[in-house]
Design a protein around this nucleic acid. Structure first.
Lengths: 341, 341
DNA sequence: GCCTCGTTTGTTAGCGGTAACATCCTCATC
DNA sequence: GATGAGGATGTTACCGCTAACAAACGAGGC
């Protein structure tokens, strides 16, 4: 920067100003500095800038996994919103464990991010303590804050939480209600990857079936394993083996649903005639399976975009963090009724 | 750090040493410093550390897209290898454009990463200039260096290139040869997302068919669009409409292949009896389609792991960068022959 | 023509660590 | 017991930039 300053015949401070806030220097100086800067191939060190200004222009983004398309879409939304504003996402993978999340968050914080985006609302008490002590904005995603729920998890009133997501419960309820409305009587559930969001979906589905008077706990098959097409195929067989009279199934994830669908084709089980199948998330390809899969479209990318927007607003202090800024953004979901039901 | 130093009754320098290289301080001091550090909740600022030591402990990782599972797997491999060593990946998305790549690389370099991982070997001359001027290690992935090829792209002998990948050409060749060996005579090609790697696969396939004396350019259907299940379904119909006698198809990506497979089911085209289908990448679920998809398993995650390992070796200067360090790591591929062929 | 005010530029002092060197101490060696 | 080597700790001077304040300058207003 000193070299650029010398070349342009100004002080280093003026170079800094000319490059960061061109409107604060005279037109002529700005031109001279830009020319010199370009000619010398000057790239300002963000590290030094960060140290001096206490702004790193980075954002910690914690997601459970890179292999789950849901969070990749979230990340894509975050990324495409942060980058144009000059922010660099720092991706951290928590592996679905609250303890690992706390650990990852701590290491990310050593990088002094200007903001944090978390997945879900279920954190360790230690994480909540940490968040409460932070002076940078934090946004939680993929879930919505619910009073009682938060208290149970360790968040207090003095820790205002910003969330962007949709109601997993309502979405699960919608699927259950849909299957019941289709006249199905023996409606089962298959779930893997039992994170809090999956559980809420299941809770919603369960409530819907109870409301319809058709809930049978025996038809629930929940396993902790990560979801996959293979698992879906396997669990479908297991579910039908134990309860051959099942006439509808809610698979808590589209990959499970696709696996189940494949397995039905293999076993010669007509879908939806003999068995209705519903998935969740509307992943790529769900509309193209044979038959096309009924599922719930979730606004994953939009959640990422909105979370990043809120965060940027907080980081630039454009709004007093609580008043105008919505604390809770519900982006909804859409039941995509296709041919498997 | 000064507070910790005071609390432990030592100098700041000793605190720094005690935390970074515990073996360089006495057992007793180390214990005192750790206790004080923990008690005060001290988190060393990586930003300051970076400025003082000229090591940011970050690595720029440039990939074309977040929505392509291939690069997500690569990223996962990189991430899981870098993180335990204390490195933080800085993910940059280039959108498949060499110009965008150069732009993204420039902004990433402002963060002073200690190393760079790039996707592919096809960069702009500006990017090559930039790379040549860097003093940090760079690893190229998903592709292998080929003398003539590199020269054409602007790399020179004075810019030693480290690559980790596999031969896209050979992999394409393997598919072509397989289809020919299966006795298919009218073998077509469907490709989207025409990046250099896809083109090399197509080149390999073409060569195989020529060697078998069965190459008919009319059976090639190449479109620039991003690949997807939907596109696969659409292109299958288009291909069969123009050339109904096609009896085998190589789809350059598994999502295309899955779409094609779905469409065959829909149109009542028996696979593989009337039409053989082969995909590429062995994405999740390929083994579970109906019938299971013949495809090529590519070592994407392993490439990420190996690239990160090489990079770490370079960053820690454990090897003189060229001698022992392999310049070109071929991780191979595997043709997964399943039922669609 | 003098004063005030706003704009533009410069000066100074760090941000929070670490490299490099200096110093101090301990202990084996002769 | 003096000597030197080597390990442990301290001191100094930055790393490259920016906040905050100071100074210089020009443009009205009286």
């Amino acid at each position: 920067m000193a070299d650029v300053a010398a070349a342009a015949g100004v002080s280093a401070m003026t170079v800094s100003r000319a490059l960061r806030r061109p409107d604060t220097v005279s037109e002529e100086v700005r031109a001279r500095v830009e020319e010199a800067s370009r000619r010398l191939g000057f790239v300002p060190s963000r590290v030094a800038s960060a140290l001096a200004s206490a702004r790193t222009m980075t954002v910690a983004v914690l997601i459970p996994s890179l292999t789950n398309a849901v969070f990749i879409d979230l990340l894509a939304g975050v990324q495409e919103t942060l980058t144009p504003q000059g922010y660099q996402p720092l991706v951290g993978i928590t592996g679905y464990g609250p303890e690992a999340e706390e650990r990852v968050l701590r290491t990310q914080l050593a990088h002094d991010p200007d903001g944090v985006i978390l997945s879900g609302l279920h954190h360790t008490p230690g994480t909540w303590d940490l968040l409460r002590s932070l002076t940078i904005p934090v946004v939680h995603t993929m879930d919505l804050s619910v009073e009682g729920d938060l208290m149970a998890e360790g968040a207090q009133d003095d820790c205002p939480v910003q969330t962007v997501g949709f109601s997993q419960f309502d979405a699960g309820y919608a699927v259950g209600a849909h299957l019941a409305a289709r006249g199905r009587r023996r409606i089962g559930l298959i779930a893997g990857q039992l994170d809090p969001r999956t559980r809420q979906r299941c809770d919603g589905w369960r409530q819907a079936l109870r409301d319809a008077g058709r809930h049978d706990p025996a038809l629930e098959l929940m396993v902790p394993d990560a979801t996959s097409v293979a698992l879906g195929a396997e669990l479908l067989e297991r579910a039908l083996a134990t309860h051959p009279d099942t006439d509808a199934l809610f698979l808590c994830n589209d990959d499970l649903a696709q696996g189940a669908l494949f397995q039905c084709a293999r076993l010669g089980i007509p879908v939806p005639e003999r068995l209705a199948i519903a998935g969740f998330n509307d992943l790529a390809g769900a509309a193209w399976t044979v038959p096309p899969l009924t599922t719930v479209a979730t606004p994953r990318r939009a959640i990422g975009v909105e979370a990043a927007r809120l965060l940027i607003a907080g980081m630039e202090n454009r709004t007093p963090q609580s008043r105008e800024n919505p604390r809770r953004v519900d982006l909804g979901f859409r039941l995509m009724v296709r041919e498997t039901t």
